[in-house]
Simulated assay, not measured.
Amino acid sequence: MLTNPRSDRVKSVRALSRRSVRSRTGQFLAEGPQAVREAVRCAPEQVRDIYVTAEGADRHPEIVDAALAAHLFVHEASPEVLHEMCDAEHPQGIVAVCRWAEPTLSAALGALPRDAVVCVLTNVRDPGNAGTVIRGADAAGADLVVVSDSSVDVSSPKVVRSTVGSLWHLPIVTGVPVPVILDALRARGVRLLAADGSGSTLLPEADLTGPHAWVMGNEAWGLDAEVRDACDEVVRVPIHGRAESLNLAMAAMLCLYASAESRVQRH
């Protein structure tokens, strides 16, 4: 059992809370039972080490059994060690060190189905919003999420926690400039739908047939004008009450589920 919270191993895991260390090592933390469970189930080849307390192992034996069956390294750690390793204020008894792996943009676009739904995040800075949109894209059956280079680091602990395991359910491409993303999608035949409150097309009236991408903007100021102008259509979610606007995650969910409903009706 690991019992020394000041050991070099513990320090190296804790250091993954820093973006510079994640970039240098290509590793990140998946904290909590749902994130670790999905990492083991969907991408065991990306899991380097799992650390679990005795209580965590008792509460989630299926995760430990699946990890051992996949020949992964599982280490028992004291609650003090796990607390020191984790970014979360209240760790949930289990954490995994994972290797970051993602497809290239060209490879991800090449694998899209004919009626693809894509979500593009441009200048999204809030970790909770980014993670919630990824989780929503997963729930709505989207085929790809692309996160621009000016957005939050998807491998940060807060983003990973807020995806609640969805990080391993669909392709995610990161670190690409917005113009490159839009040009590549258009070249692939994907229509670009800017989700913005200035849109003249209401969401219920939008044409959601064929491959299309929802292009989402910053939490505070929305989409830049040049990004809106580069899209094929600007769509807004109608507001029937007195709310000034919807936040990014809420708007993204509505748009993605409208696409999901359209696809279900066609099939």
Rank of each mutant, 00 (worst) to 15 (best):
R191Y: 08
G110A: 07
V164L: 13
V164T: 14
V235K: 07
R37I: 08
C86D: 01
E55Q: 13
A139L: 09
A195K: 06
V159L: 07
V97K: 00
S20H: 05
L29F: 02
V146I: 15
T174A: 10
V152D: 00
D207T: 06
L203W: 12
R114G: 05
H212V: 15
V178C: 15
V47C: 01
L203K: 07
A195F: 12
V215K: 02
A15W: 07
K158L: 14
V237S: 00
S151T: 03
L68W: 11
V190N: 08
L202I: 15
E233Y: 11
L192M: 06
G56F: 10
L223D: 06
D126V: 15
S166M: 05
K11H: 09
A43T: 15
D58I: 11
R242Y: 04
A35W: 01
R59G: 01
V147A: 01
T122Y: 05
A43H: 10
L68F: 11
S17D: 07
E80N: 00
T201K: 08
A39G: 12
V234W: 06
L82R: 00
R114C: 07
G141P: 14
C42G: 00
V118W: 03
G165Y: 02
V118F: 04
R266E: 13
A251Q: 01
R99T: 15
V40H: 03
L223W: 08
V40S: 03
A67I: 15
R161Q: 10
V21M: 01
A206K: 05
D49R: 09
R125F: 10
R188C: 13
T104I: 14
A243K: 01
R188K: 14
V264T: 03
L16K: 00
V176K: 02
I50F: 06
V164G: 04
D8C: 00
A69H: 12
H90W: 13
E55G: 09
V13M: 09
A116R: 01
S200G: 05
F73N: 09
S156N: 13
K158N: 08
P211D: 13
C119S: 12
R125Q: 08
D58A: 14
V74G: 12
R41K: 11
D49G: 04
R59N: 04
Q265W: 14
P171Y: 09
Q46F: 06
I181P: 05
V147S: 01
